[in-house]
Computed example of a mutant assay.
Amino acid sequence: MRRDVFQAIADPVRRDIIELISKETLTVNDVAAKFNISRPAISKHIKILHECNIIQIQKEGRKRYCKIQPQHLVPAFLWIEQYKKLWEDRIDSFENYLTELQSKNNKNG
């Protein structure tokens, strides 16, 4: 199965793993200890992140370390960034509408 960055970030557990590993390199066991789900489930999430090139797995002896590969998150960032202006404009428009309603209510009240 072909995997990409969007599949990697689609799951909230994987987003949490990305956040953890972005702060420090952790072993798979260290990552698993931070969650209230099974070790096999965490291993599956880590495998998907690895297949998407979001994390690199480095073996040192019996330990497997997870290291973030932030450059592979860029496509998702760029895709989201293109909609930033659209959403900012819509939020500003909604804010103006609410201000207008509030102003009318204050005049009538």
Results as ranks from 00 to 15, higher is better:
Tyr97Gly: 05
Ala41Asp: 08
Arg14Ser: 01
Lys63Asp: 09
Ile18Ala: 06
Lys34Asp: 10
Ile68Arg: 01
Glu100Cys: 03
Tyr83Gly: 05
Glu88Lys: 05
Gln58Leu: 12
Phe77Ile: 15
Ser93Leu: 10
His50Gly: 06
Arg39Thr: 04
Lys23Thr: 14
Val74Tyr: 09
Cys52Asp: 02
Arg90Met: 06
Ala76Ile: 07
Lys85Cys: 00
Lys44Arg: 15
Trp79Arg: 15
Ile55Phe: 02
Ile80Glu: 10
Lys59Glu: 10
Lys59Pro: 03
Phe35Met: 05
Ile54Met: 10
Glu81Arg: 13
Ser93Met: 06
Val5Pro: 10
Ile42Phe: 02
Val31Asn: 02
Asp4Gln: 01
Trp87Tyr: 13
Ile91Met: 06
Glu88Gln: 09
Thr99His: 12
Gln56Pro: 00
Ser43Asn: 14
Pro70Arg: 07
Pro12Trp: 08
Gln69Met: 13
Ile37Met: 13
Leu98Thr: 10
Ile21Thr: 13
Glu24Phe: 12
Lys85Tyr: 02
Arg90Trp: 04
Ala10Pro: 03
Thr99Met: 12
Ser38Lys: 11
Arg62Ser: 12
Ala10Trp: 06
Lys59Ala: 10
Val5Asp: 07
Ser38Pro: 07
Phe6Thr: 03
Asn36Ile: 08
Gln58Lys: 13
Gln71Gly: 03
Arg39Ser: 02
Pro75Glu: 04
Phe35Lys: 05
Pro75Ala: 04
Val31Arg: 02
